[in-house]
Design a protein around this nucleic acid. Structure first.
Length: 262
DNA sequence: AACCAGGCCAACCGCCCAATT
DNA sequence: CAATTGGGCGGTTGGCCTGGT
């Protein structure tokens, strides 16, 4: 229903690498008319491309805010952390890396990071990089973001928050050839954790996160207390539900991600 | 110099979902 | 309510480049 064969496979349309002239036509058109209406765009812009191809070219290559060049070690770490939280949700991950595209991150993951993480997992023994540490100290391979739970706990300042974080940064320095000790490592003790708690308090005071947290748990059919505290075990499919959130709930997910990247 | 293998990355493909008709 | 459209996403492909032999 409503699905047509690939627009790019229609006769008479160009495929393959874009020429400088095509790029110029596309950029010129979007600068004058803005993004959107991709299906109609090629005709109006004088391009023999399908709309999807135009959109992809713009989004992944021609957009003025795209950051070209090598992925930095900070971005590298961030991608790994986000992937451990979100899985192959490249658009979500890209949304946390200004100027990077989902395609670029996906390619980078497939060509660089997946191998590195695999090696890390092989070498790391119990502290596997992609595992998520759950409340009782066990690890899980299911990529459920159990680390989000303490965000909604009332006494977050004293419940060993770091042990629940989704990633252990402990093996970071070793396999990176000196790249370790990045500034955005997850806080595990001392002042950084205190700062984190203070940040949480500010967010809580704003009222945004607690209320949304409760709402989200209800949305996900999780049990929660009146103050938004999650009180039962995550069900198997809950993570998937979490990642399918939209609208305000999606914003809550974004907030959770923010929290874990402090 | 020629060949080959592997890595990288831009682009395509197929599917999904929300909005519109 | 069903059909259609528009847009977005993740997976995959294929061409180019580079390094090794």
């Amino acid at each position: 229903m409503g699905r047509t064969s690939s627009c790019c496979s229609k006769g008479g349309l160009h495929k393959g690498p874009w020429t400088a002239r095509e790029d110029a036509l596309l950029v010129n058109y979007i600068q004058q008319n803005g993004e959107g209406h991709w299906r109609a765009l090629p005709k109006k812009a004088g391009l023999l491309r399908c709309g999807k191809s135009c959109r992809l070219r713009w989004m992944n290559y021609l957009r003025p805010d795209i950051k070209r060049g090598n992925i930095t070690t900070d971005e590298d770490d961030l991608i790994i952390k986000l992937h451990s939280l979100l899985g192959n949700r490249w658009s979500l991950i890209a949304g946390r890396l200004p100027g990077r595209t989902d395609n670029e991150i996906k390619n980078y993951w497939n060509s660089h990071l997946s191998k590195r993480v695999a090696i890390t997992k092989d070498n790391a023994g119990e502290t596997k990089k992609e595992n998520i540490i759950i409340e009782n100290g066990e690890t899980s391979n299911t990529r459920k973001p159990i680390g989000i739970l303490p965000f909604c706990n009332e006494d977050n300042s004293s419940n060993g928050m770091a042990s629940r974080l989704p990633l252990s940064s402990g093996n970071q320095g070793g396999d990176n050839g000196g790249g370790g000790g990045g500034t955005d490592q997850l806080a595990v003790n001392g002042d950084e954790e205190i700062q984190k708690v203070k940040g949480m308090e500010e967010l809580e005071e704003s009222g945004d996160l607690f209320g949304g947290c409760e709402g989200m748990y209800k949305e996900l059919s999780w049990n929660c207390s009146e103050n938004g505290e999650r009180i039962d075990e995550i069900e198997d499919d809950s993570y998937q539900q979490l990642l399918n959130l939209h609208g305000e709930d999606y914003i809550q997910l974004e907030s959770f991600i923010d929290y874990f990247l402090i």
